[in-house]
Protein backbone atom coordinates (compact mmCIF):
# COMPACT_ATOMS: atom_id res chain seq x y z
CA UNK A 1 0.00 0.00 0.00
CA UNK A 2 1.52 3.31 -0.96
CA UNK A 3 2.60 5.16 2.16
CA UNK A 4 2.44 8.63 0.66
CA UNK A 5 -1.24 8.24 -0.26
CA UNK A 6 -2.11 7.39 3.31
CA UNK A 7 -0.12 10.34 4.56
CA UNK A 8 -1.83 12.68 2.09
CA UNK A 9 -5.16 11.35 3.30
CA UNK A 10 -4.19 12.09 6.88
CA UNK A 11 -3.11 15.61 6.00
CA UNK A 12 -6.32 16.24 4.10
CA UNK A 13 -8.46 14.96 6.97
CA UNK A 14 -6.56 17.14 9.40
CA UNK A 15 -6.94 20.25 7.33
CA UNK A 16 -10.62 19.58 6.72
CA UNK A 17 -11.10 19.14 10.46
CA UNK A 18 -9.20 22.34 11.16
CA UNK A 19 -11.29 24.27 8.66
CA UNK A 20 -14.42 22.91 10.30
CA UNK A 21 -13.23 23.88 13.75
CA UNK A 22 -12.38 27.39 12.64
CA UNK A 23 -15.39 28.26 10.58
CA UNK A 24 -18.45 26.50 12.01
CA UNK A 25 -20.65 28.38 14.40
CA UNK A 26 -22.40 25.40 15.90
CA UNK A 27 -20.61 23.84 18.82
CA UNK A 28 -21.41 20.31 17.73
CA UNK A 29 -19.85 20.98 14.36
CA UNK A 30 -16.70 22.09 16.11
CA UNK A 31 -16.64 18.79 17.95
CA UNK A 32 -17.03 16.96 14.63
CA UNK A 33 -13.97 18.84 13.37
CA UNK A 34 -12.00 17.76 16.37
CA UNK A 35 -12.99 14.13 15.72
CA UNK A 36 -11.75 14.47 12.17
CA UNK A 37 -8.39 15.77 13.34
CA UNK A 38 -8.04 12.92 15.82
CA UNK A 39 -8.77 10.45 13.03
CA UNK A 40 -6.17 12.09 10.85
CA UNK A 41 -3.63 11.39 13.60
CA UNK A 42 -4.85 7.78 13.79
CA UNK A 43 -4.33 7.30 10.08
CA UNK A 44 -0.69 8.30 10.43
CA UNK A 45 -0.15 6.10 13.50
CA UNK A 46 -1.62 3.03 11.83
CA UNK A 47 0.30 3.69 8.62
CA UNK A 48 3.64 3.70 10.34
CA UNK A 49 2.69 0.82 12.62
CA UNK A 50 3.17 -1.55 9.68
CA UNK A 51 6.90 -1.15 9.95
CA UNK A 52 6.95 -2.29 13.56
CA UNK A 53 5.89 -5.93 13.44
CA UNK A 54 7.08 -6.75 16.90
CA UNK A 55 5.53 -3.99 18.94
CA UNK A 56 2.92 -2.53 16.60
CA UNK A 57 3.10 0.46 18.87
CA UNK A 58 1.26 2.60 16.37
CA UNK A 59 -1.84 0.45 16.66
CA UNK A 60 -1.64 0.49 20.43
CA UNK A 61 -1.36 4.24 20.38
CA UNK A 62 -4.25 4.48 17.91
CA UNK A 63 -6.36 2.39 20.23
CA UNK A 64 -5.63 4.77 23.09
CA UNK A 65 -6.43 7.73 20.87
CA UNK A 66 -9.81 6.22 20.01
CA UNK A 67 -10.54 5.70 23.68
CA UNK A 68 -9.56 9.24 24.56
CA UNK A 69 -11.63 10.49 21.63
CA UNK A 70 -14.62 8.65 22.99
CA UNK A 71 -14.10 10.19 26.40
CA UNK A 72 -13.61 13.59 24.88
CA UNK A 73 -16.77 13.28 22.82
CA UNK A 74 -18.77 12.26 25.87
CA UNK A 75 -17.50 15.12 27.99
CA UNK A 76 -17.71 17.58 25.14
CA UNK A 77 -21.29 16.78 24.33
CA UNK A 78 -22.22 16.85 27.99
CA UNK A 79 -20.71 20.31 28.19
CA UNK A 80 -22.56 21.41 25.08
CA UNK A 81 -25.84 20.27 26.55
CA UNK A 82 -25.10 22.04 29.78
CA UNK A 83 -24.01 25.21 28.00
CA UNK A 84 -27.16 25.11 25.98
CA UNK A 85 -29.24 24.85 29.12
CA UNK A 86 -27.38 27.81 30.57
CA UNK A 87 -27.14 30.17 27.59
CA UNK A 88 -30.09 28.87 25.58
CA UNK A 89 -27.83 28.64 22.55
CA UNK A 90 -25.34 26.27 21.01
CA UNK A 91 -23.86 29.06 18.96
CA UNK A 92 -20.20 29.34 19.84
CA UNK A 93 -20.05 33.04 18.95
CA UNK A 94 -22.44 33.96 21.64
CA UNK A 95 -20.43 32.20 24.32
CA UNK A 96 -17.69 34.72 24.91
CA UNK A 97 -17.39 34.90 28.66
CA UNK A 98 -13.60 34.83 28.25
CA UNK A 99 -13.60 38.14 26.41
CA UNK A 100 -10.81 40.31 27.69
Amino acid sequence: MPLNFVLFLGALLFCAGLYTVITKKNTIMVLVGVELMLNAANVNLVAFSRFDAVGIQGQVFALFVITVAAAEAAIGLALVVKVYQHFQTANIDEINELKG
Binding site: E35, N39, V46, A47, S49, Q59, I66, A69
Partner: peptide, 19 residues
Amino acid sequence: FLGAEFIAVTQILVYVGGI
Protein backbone atom coordinates in the same frame (compact mmCIF):
# COMPACT_ATOMS: atom_id res chain seq x y z
CA PHE B 1 -5.66 -2.67 4.18
CA LEU B 2 -2.99 -1.30 6.44
CA GLY B 3 -3.08 -4.52 8.49
CA ALA B 4 -4.96 -3.10 11.45
CA GLU B 5 -8.19 -5.07 11.45
CA PHE B 6 -8.77 -4.62 15.15
CA ILE B 7 -8.46 -0.86 14.88
CA ALA B 8 -10.85 -0.92 11.94
CA VAL B 9 -13.46 -2.81 13.90
CA THR B 10 -13.00 -0.58 16.90
CA GLN B 11 -13.30 2.45 14.64
CA ILE B 12 -16.71 1.32 13.43
CA LEU B 13 -17.88 0.26 16.87
CA VAL B 14 -16.81 3.35 18.71
CA TYR B 15 -17.29 6.09 16.18
CA VAL B 16 -20.18 4.86 14.14
CA GLY B 17 -21.94 3.08 16.96
CA GLY B 18 -21.12 5.39 19.83
CA ILE B 19 -19.88 8.84 19.07
